[in-house]
Each structure stands twice: as C-alpha cells, then as structure tokens.
Write a protein that binds this DNA or RNA. Structure first.
Lengths: 337, 337
DNA sequence: TTGAAAGCGATACCAC
DNA sequence: GTGGTATCGCTTTCAA
C-alpha cells in the first residue's frame, strides 16, 4: 500500500551525492547533452543511480529553465472521436512519449470548456484545421509559440487527411457495382460544415469523372422527417445508390428507406464513411470507408516533433490510405462475419 | 496576422515597473494572498496594469514555486467515451477552469500510450474505478500525491455512479411492459469485465425482487455467431425480453433476432444502456437508459476541488439520476421522431 | 572530462 | 501596508 503523502521526490542532487559527482554532470548525462564528453564509467554510474533511486525529473523546473514545456496539445472537433481515431491517437502519443512529450487531446466543443492552451502551457498546439485569428491571439497571450497548421492560411479541408480520397472511393465503389444514378446525403448539423461540403464536392466531382448522373446533395436529419422525404424523393427520381457523409448519416438514410418499404441494397444502396462501430452493428451492416489512420498518426507525430525541433515540415498533411469495407448495404448478401 | 515568435511574455516584474511597486506586492494582489492588506488604490492599479499588459502567469514557474501543478488528470476506460460523457466532461472542465485547474482526460487504452501522469505532473489523478497497486506506485514515482478513488480499497463498480441503478431500471421497464421471463446479454470483451458483471448482477437481483424468471447471462459477440446462438436459445427457452449491457450489445442482439426471423419487440424485446447514438439510429430504435451525467460531472468537479484543497470528501461517488428512454425495441410502435 | 554558478518567474516568509 | 529575498529543481554557459 504505497503511501503517497510521505513520498519525497528524488532530485538530481540526490543522484549527484549518491554517485559523487556534481549535479551538473548528472544533468549532462540525463539529458544526453550534446557536445559534452562524459566518461562511460560515470555515465553508467549516474544512469544506474537514477533508476535505482527512481529519479523522475521535475517537469515544472525543467519547463521553467528551458522556457518551454513538453506538452503537445491536439485540438479536435467534437464529433470526430471514434474508436479508430482513438487508437490512432494512442499511436501518436506513444511515439511522442518516447521523445518525452505528452500528447494531450482536447475535443473542443465550441462554447464548452475553455481551451486547454490557456492553462496547460503547451509547447505546440495542433488543430485538424486552421485556427481562427481569435484563437491564435488567445494562444499567443497564453505563451504558445508554435501552432499547426500554420496560422494565416484559410481552412482547407480538402488538404486534411483522407477527406477527398474517401469520398472518391465511395463513388468508385458504387460505380463498380453498376450504379449510374446516385445522390449525396449530408448532415443537417452545422458542425463540421466545411468538412461535409468538401467531401460532398469530391463525390460530385468523381461522379462526373466517371460519367455518372448525380442528382445532388441533400441534408438529412434523424430528428425531423427529412430522411423520409429524401428517400422518397430519390426513389421518385430513379436514384439507386446514396453516398453518405458518414456512417451515422448512412444509418439514418437506410433506416428511412426501410421504413418506406424499400429493400437495401436492391432498391437503394447506401455507403457510409469512417467505418465506425455503427457501420458494423447496423442492420443491415453498412458499407463504409476505413482510413488507415495509424499511418497518419505516425505522420502526425513526426510533424509535431519536427516542429518542436524548430525545423517545421513544409507540407503539413499527408494523404491517408483509405479502403472500402463492403457490407450488406451495398453488396446485397448479408455477411455473417 | 499575429506573430507568435515575436511575442515576449509579460512577467510580474513588468507590472511592478509599470505600476511602481515591488514585484512582491504584485504577487499579493494577483494571488489575492490572504492576510495581506493592500490598499484598494494600488490593488486596482496593479489589476489594471495586468489586464492592460495582457499578463498571464507562467505556469511552470508557479508550479515550481508552489510545489504542485494545477492539472487534474482524469483516467477513463477506453470504451466509455460517448457524446453524453463528452458533454459531461466539458461541464466538469468548465467548473475546474474557474478555479484555475486544467482537466485533462486520458482514455486509457491498456497497452496503449504510457499514462499521462508520468509526464504531465498532475496534482490529482482521478479514475473511474480504483487503480492497481502498480499504477499507484508509478504515480508516486512521478510525484503524484493525490489519487481518487483513494488507493487501497478494491475496485467496487457497484459504487461507481449509476451502475446498479441503470440495470435496475432496465429490468423495471421490461417488468412494467409485462415481461416475466428475461435474460441478460453481456459483451464478450474482457475490457470492463467488472463493470459488466456488476451491471449483470444488479439486473439479476432486481429480476428476483420483482419475481421475474431470469434465465441467466450470456456473452454475445458481433464477430462470431454467438449472438445468433443466443437468440435461438432464448427463443427456445421462452424468453421474451433481453437486458443488454449497453447499446452496442442491444444492437447486436436485435440484429441477430431479425436475422433469425423474429420481430422486435413482438417476439423479443431488447433494452440497451447509455443512450448512445446507435440507440437512436438503429433500426428499430433501441430503448435505453440515459444517465444524468451532467449532475455527476458537477459532483466530480466538487470532489476534485475539495481534494485539491486538502479536505477530501468522505464518500467519493454520488448516485446518478437515470431515466429510461423508451423506443421501438421495447414499446412496439416505431417512432417517427 | 567535470564543476561552478547564473538564471528561469512566481511564491511566501520575514522584516520594516 | 509594502518590500526584500530565499526557494523550487533544472538547464546551460563558461571556467577549470
């Protein structure tokens, strides 16, 4: 039963005394200070003593002396957080932890809690898209010195990872299945509007390239009757398949179609995006697009570390590898798996 | 276009110079140091100068001098994070922010990223359930001095907020609808096993109290065929309704039932738990239990602040207000809303 | 190859 | 009421 209160922290001085060197030497060893030549013997003894005594450097002191913290703050829009993204962030965090950085994620509900950069003193703040001038100003006041994406450029979701690519793959999938007249279902939620628009535009563009007929984009909500209307309108219009903004929207559309007495996918095929849990759990299971988000998270970590080093990368985002996960909502045969 | 790099931080010295007092006086004013009598005149001038110059105290320096940080780390099991919990944490964070604390949430994927208490130097670490001895030891090494729930007691999910209450309400709901022979569907995922068990036990107990027949608990997975088996077994056994561990499990069961040609809820009623998005989006929509988690989050904030003050609360958790959200999976008529 | 010492910026104790 | 000043633990430059 470890007694927390009684614990007195081990400092670099303790190690110095233990080993019989100066506290400075200890610092050099522990920080691997370049340009300092420490004999292997003392280095080993210091390291040994450090682990033996259970030394943990004091963050506050280090941050103060260094003039910057080792915290990286990642700000994400609220709705984005699914299990896959969760796993992805874990991967980023693991990499950054090896470099001594703590990755803190804030899913910024607008109007919710105040931004953590005000209190956390992060060294870098990373956003999914560009921050507003107000936000950047607030960061500067709080002493944040590095911001990604670089402020000043307008938000460009089409450069965010996987956005356009995923939409293209949705359309391609439907095209391969023989659909020639399709529609896009968007979400009647102002949040993430830009992202929705970008995905929708990419889908429309791709449909054109493939010579498909695209009847347009409809916003759909689960709360009102708009999904029912949409489904009936599409049916009347000869639409055979729908590209949904995400899996939630796909579920809404599919549900409305079933209510309207249509069979899925015979009368209407639906494909979602993000491969969230609902895609697998919905009945019938929903085809979706899965992003290889682990690769992206490695990239994110790399970007952050380079920024911390002061050698920022020129292009911030990489393209994501995406794959279509075909399920019963488009390919017809309910899967057992 | 705010230039981040050029920003030099405003320190207490700057204010002192500006106002013409000592830096100590500035400190007293800004911290509202009790027992210090500062004339209203100087206090006002200091405060004015502080806002005018855009003063923000340096976290690292304050933390170092104070010997503790203003970070509260909340560690949650991975799967727990839905939109409602998200909103709840926002509420907690807002309250804590007013007291100058930053609430950082880590959804601890086991084997994932290293725990943030190693790098974040939090003043308090709060868990949903009791931490293991190893974890507590690791916290102590990292200099964490306050842990909630207090280490040493074994994990007791039945005291965690809303756990037993929710399960009881699920059973009550089915009982009111006339069901007399029910079963419990659990998740074949070792994660959160204790929580599952506690909920299941509460359900079994409640069924007994109400004189219902309870055929037992079955683990169900979406991946293998276990949900299909379970549904057939229940049907053969005369079960008319199922209490599911959460909405995902409810969806799995409902899906399997539909596949088996059963109608919901006529042949099998299903109620989930947590009122997550899938409950509303699933087809048919799933009855569920919604926890009044905002109230709990206020309580969480209060507990944390009291702990920070050094006057810990005696009982850590409060009971959550829960309500049943009836939907088509139990009450029969598909809802339009 | 190692050590001494000057900060970093705020806190809080003790004088005046 | 207000002002010095030691202190927190580490980083880093300069000497030795």
């Amino acid at each position: 039963m470890p007694d927390l209160a009684a614990a007195r922290r081990v400092t670099a001085v303790d190690i110095a005394k233990e080993v019989g060197v100066s506290r400075a030497t200890v610092g050099f060893v522990l920080n691997n200070t370049p340009g300092k030549k420490i004999s292997e013997a003392t280095r080993a003894r210091v390291l040994d003593a450090a682990t033996r005594l259970g030394y943990q450097p004091n963050r506050a002191a280090a941050d103060l002396a260094r003039g910057r913290s080792k915290i990286i703050l990642l700000v994400l829009p609220g709705r984005l957080l699914g299990p896959s993204l969760q796993a992805s962030l874990d991967e980023s965090a693991r990499i950054l932890a090896e470099a001594g950085y703590a990755l803190v994620t804030q899913t910024g509900a607008p109007g919710g809690a105040p931004p953590l950069w005000e209190t956390l003193n992060p060294d870098i703040v990373i956003g999914w898209t560009t921050f507003s001038d107000d936000e950047v100003a607030s960061m500067r006041v709080a002493g944040v010195r590095r911001v990604l994406p670089p402020p000043g450029e307008s938000a460009r979701y089409d450069q965010a990872p996987g956005v356009s690519e995923g939409a293209r793959m949705q359309v391609d999938h439907l095209h391969e299945l023989g659909h020639r007249r399709i529609a896009v279902a968007s979400l009647a939620d102002p949040q993430m509007l830009d992202l929705q628009r970008t995905r929708a535009e990419a889908a429309v563009k791709r449909a054109e390239e493939l010579g498909m007929e695209m009847v347009g984009v409809r916003s759909v909500s689960h709360a009102d009757g708009s999904s029912g209307e949409a489904v009936r309108a599409w049916a009347a219009d000869g639409v055979t398949a729908v590209v949904a903004y995400n899996d939630d929207v796909a579920a809404t559309v599919a549900g409305a179609a079933i209510d309207a007495g249509m069979r899925i996918p015979a009368d209407l095929a639906v494909i979602g995006h993000d491969d969230s849990p609902i895609a697998e759990l919905f009945h019938p299971p929903l085809s979706s697009v899965r992003m290889d988000i682990i690769e992206a998270s490695r990239y994110l970590a790399a970007v952050a570390l380079r920024e911390a080093d002061g050698r920022p990368m020129t292009s911030t985002w990489t393209e994501l590898d995406s794959t279509v996960v075909p399920r019963a909502s488009t390919v017809g045969r309910p899967q057992t798996g």
